[in-house]
Design a protein around this nucleic acid. Structure first.
Length: 209
DNA sequence: TTGGCGATTGGCT
DNA sequence: GCCAATCGCCAAT
């Protein structure tokens, strides 16, 4: 789809999401974010793409990082909806979440994959591969491709800054729902959302039907 | 102060 | 498909 020449046009049609339009409820936000754009502004250019996979970690969820209350690490989950919570998993992979619910309530949505649209060469360099499908399929890969790390923890994604959420007004395609990936607790709940048939979605085939 | 444990990934069988 | 790498977090010592 997106060739390197049409990048500027795509960006021009894009607008930053207004906090007022994004759902307060965590699962609703996870569904809402499918099809929206994730935009990373870097010194070397703009990189990003369409969100194709998310997971909700709502109020009282034993699998969520906010489950045991606020700590230094997870405090961004307690910010007003639309802020970034970034943490390091398994010592090597950064995870990007969007805070949800009301201020003081800890919950968020994990962004698991994007369909690359802009700054392909930047992402290829950051990932060390030219395989388009592998650039941002999976939360750790997505963060590596977009140079997302703890410096972005707590930043406002509803504002034109280094990292923001946008909309180009286009529909996402059919949205599927499944169990979340890689969990041991509360693994049965259907809180993962993805674009059906999209090859940039991560996880096993059985969960992507 | 310490030890067990991940919301993962990539390499190897 | 299996599994080790890797390190910050946090509950328990």
């Amino acid at each position: 789809m997106s060739e390197r020449g049409d990048v500027d046009t795509t960006i021009a049609r894009r607008r930053v999401l207004d906090r007022a339009e994004i759902p307060v409820d965590t699962a609703q936000l996870a569904h809402f974010l499918i099809g929206k754009m994730l935009v990373r502004v870097l010194a070397e250019g703009v990189a990003g793409g369409r969100i194709v996979e998310t997971e909700a970690y709502g109020i009282g969820d034993p699998a969520g990082h906010a489950y045991r209350g606020i700590t230094r690490r997870n405090r961004a989950l307690f910010l007003e909806r639309g802020h970034a919570y970034v943490y390091l998993a398994y010592g090597s992979s950064f995870m990007l979440n969007v805070s949800s619910e009301t201020p003081g309530v800890g919950a968020g949505v994990l962004i698991r994959a994007i369909e690359p649209a802009n700054g392909i060469t930047i992402m290829e360099r950051n990932r060390g591969t030219e395989r388009l499908r592998d650039l941002a399929r999976g939360p750790g890969r997505l963060s590596a491709a977009l140079e997302i790390d703890r410096r972005l923890d707590g930043s406002d994604l509803c504002r034109a800054g280094p990292l923001w959420l946008g909309s180009d007004g286009r529909a996402s395609g059919e949205i599927g729902q499944s169990k979340r990936i890689g969990l041991t607790h509360a693994a049965d709940r259907l809180l993962r959302f993805y674009v059906r048939g999209n090859r940039f979605v991560s996880g096993p085939q059985a969960l992507n039907r």
